[in-house]
């Protein structure tokens, strides 16, 4: 029997509307700042750049990178979270559970605290390396366990490594207030300090991660129905898991390098998306990318506007605003 795939509650216009909304958020993000720039100037600057105009320079050189950053980090974390939840079949899974976020924090704390390196281009690199190493450790433990890297083993190993590194980070913070002071804001996740250079080398990883995520999405849907069903549907489960994990690590490492360990987006945006578009990862993955990007753009604007001229750490605002919305979604949709 062939059943047409209906999008629950969404018309075929929805993707277009989604892209339009994210573009609008993008333009809004650029227009807001110490000097407010009208939306049409933003669009002009993006479409026909004129270096002679001051506003255009501000838009392209100063604000565009940060807007891009917010969109990329949001999309990356949301997609990584969606994949993690699909592959482990556990709603509590998130990119952080592979130890990626704590790994980044730990590496940064060690480098800043022990070697006293504070170069703004180095920290992102250190964060990314820390994230990947931690994920490697988690995977190593899970794979070495009898029965192989079953979802439960993976999650438990991740939780263990996470707790371990988080404890070490706290010990370091307690023993060395200086470092803690320096890193306080970074550790909540912030879009303020990122460098264009970092953006450049994070971009390919982000792209690769997203492409792989989109490519495996169909099979993740099958995997979400159980490993055996997935194999029955012709999925190479081992390869699928490896690819998904690659995507998760690439996306999260890129995000953590750009914005520090930002928690909430990867855990909650995929759930919100799932409540809205259903259980098919062919829809969940692209919608998570859109929702994550749009969400973080809006949040970043709010973070800057809320107590202007003081800027609140974006990582905090994501949860403070997003959590009530999410709880409302759960209540009305589930």
């Amino acid at each position: 029997m062939i059943v047409p795939l209906e999008r629950p509650g969404l018309s075929s216009l929805a993707p277009l509307l989604g892209i339009a909304a994210v573009s609008l958020a993008f333009a809004w993000h650029i227009s807001v700042g110490a000097r407010s720039i009208p939306l049409h100037v933003v669009v002009e600057a993006l479409l026909s750049y004129d270096p002679a105009l001051f506003d255009h320079v501000v838009v392209v050189d100063l604000r565009l990178p940060r807007a891009l950053l917010a969109a990329l980090v949001g999309a990356a974390l949301a997609v990584a979270g969606a994949l993690m939840q699909g592959v482990t079949r556990n709603p509590l899974a998130e990119p952080g559970i592979l130890g990626l976020l704590v790994g980044a924090s730990f590496a940064v704390v060690v480098v800043v605290g022990v070697f006293d390196l504070t170069s703004p281009t180095l920290i992102p690199l250190v964060a990314a390396v820390g994230a990947v190493l931690a994920a490697g450790a988690v995977w190593g433990i899970a794979a070495a366990a009898p029965g192989g890297a079953a979802p439960l083993t993976l999650i438990l190993a991740g939780a263990a490594v996470m707790a371990f590194l988080a404890a070490l980070v706290t010990v370091a913070s307690l023993l060395d207030e200086q470092t803690f002071e320096q890193l306080r804001v970074w550790m909540t996740g912030s879009l303020a300090g990122a460098q264009n250079e970092v953006l450049k080398w994070a971009l390919p990883w982000f792209g690769a991660g997203l492409i792989v995520a989109l490519a495996v999405a169909r099979q993740v849907t099958a995997l979400a129905m159980g490993e055996e069903t997935a194999i029955g549907l012709g999925t190479d489960v081992v390869r699928l898991k490896a690819l998904s994990l690659f995507a998760v690590v690439a996306l999260t490492a890129a995000a953590v390098a750009l914005a520090g360990p930002m928690g909430f987006v990867g855990l909650v945006v995929p759930h919100a998306v799932r409540l809205l578009v259903g259980q098919d990862y062919r829809r969940i993955v692209p919608w998570s990318a859109l929702a994550g990007a749009g969400y973080l753009l809006v949040i970043d604007v709010v973070a800057r506007l809320l107590l202007a001229p003081v800027e609140i750490s974006t990582g905090l605002v994501t949860a403070l605003i997003g959590a009530p919305i999410f709880v409302w979604l759960v209540r009305t949709r589930l």
Partner: peptide, 13 residues
């Protein structure tokens, strides 16, 4: 579980 996640994230933030 989902409500717990949401509220916990809010409080932690």
């Amino acid at each position: 579980i989902l409500t717990g996640i949401g509220i916990a994230a809010f409080i932690s933030a």
